[in-house]
Nucleic acid binder design. Structure first.
Length: 212
DNA sequence: GGCCAGGACACCA
DNA sequence: TGGTGTCATGGC
């Protein structure tokens, strides 16, 4: 069922191409990490505004973030919401990354346990960083995933690790599938299937009558 | 003008 | 262990 849903969503929505980066940040994976923290419970469009502010001010690189006053950083990332909390988190996270000498080395060596032990990074943010920045096969479970598959009757739990394990058991050994699947579930979750034209060709007609 | 978004954490019983 | 409050802007 899990693979079937993936195929249907991919055919319906097409590749989502996550994670979008601007090519202005080197390495691009660093922008993924920053975005992963800024997008916590926040619309991606607002995150893009915050990322743009950081780029325009030319302070998105780790050194600049570490040196910057937290209030100044908060001001720049304001559009992403929870800006005081996120500014503090982003600064501490940057210091954590640079303790591993370089972003590249962080990407190569960081473990899931280390990320989860960091105050401000929960399972979803950790797995997003691992999957989209580090290139590890780590399925990202979010509220949409839980809601969609619970309503479909495929799962009967809210437990993050249980759901993640179930997906990872069923998915092929292909990181592109992991990356695309999570993005597709977000796309589906954001879609109000009561509205045309989605409903007429909804890939998951059984649950299409409800707003999923 | 209300609702919610690509969460996480502290606090409490 | 589970429920609740807090953090907050901006699009729809």
């Amino acid at each position: 069922m899990i693979l079937k849903v993936y195929t249907k969503l991919l055919n319906h929505f097409g590749p989502q191409g996550w994670w979008p980066t601007s090519k202005l940040v080197e390495p691009p994976e660093w922008e993924v990490c920053v975005g992963a923290i800024l997008t916590q419970n926040t619309n991606w469009k607002n995150v893009e505004k915050a990322l743009t502010n950081l780029k325009i001010a030319d302070v998105i690189d780790p050194d600049s973030i570490m040196k910057m006053n937290t209030d100044k950083l908060a001001e720049l990332i304001k559009p992403s919401g929870f800006y005081n909390q996120k500014a503090e988190r982003l600064k501490r996270f940057t210091e954590f990354v640079m303790e591993k000498e370089s972003v590249q080395n962080f990407l190569k060596t960081v473990t899931r346990e280390e990320l989860l032990a960091f105050n401000g990074i929960g399972p979803e943010t950790a797995d997003s960083i691992l999957l989209y920045a580090c290139g590890r096969k780590q399925f990202v479970v979010d509220a949409y995933t839980k809601r969609i598959f619970n309503r479909m009757g495929v799962i009967d739990t809210e437990n993050y690790e249980q759901i993640r394990n179930m997906f990872e058991e069923k998915l092929p050994n292909n990181i592109r599938v992991y990356r695309e699947y999570h993005a597709l579930l977000v796309k589906l979750g954001k879609t109000n299937c009561k509205k045309e034209p989605v409903c007429s060709t909804c890939p998951l007609t059984k649950i299409c009558k409800k707003k999923i």
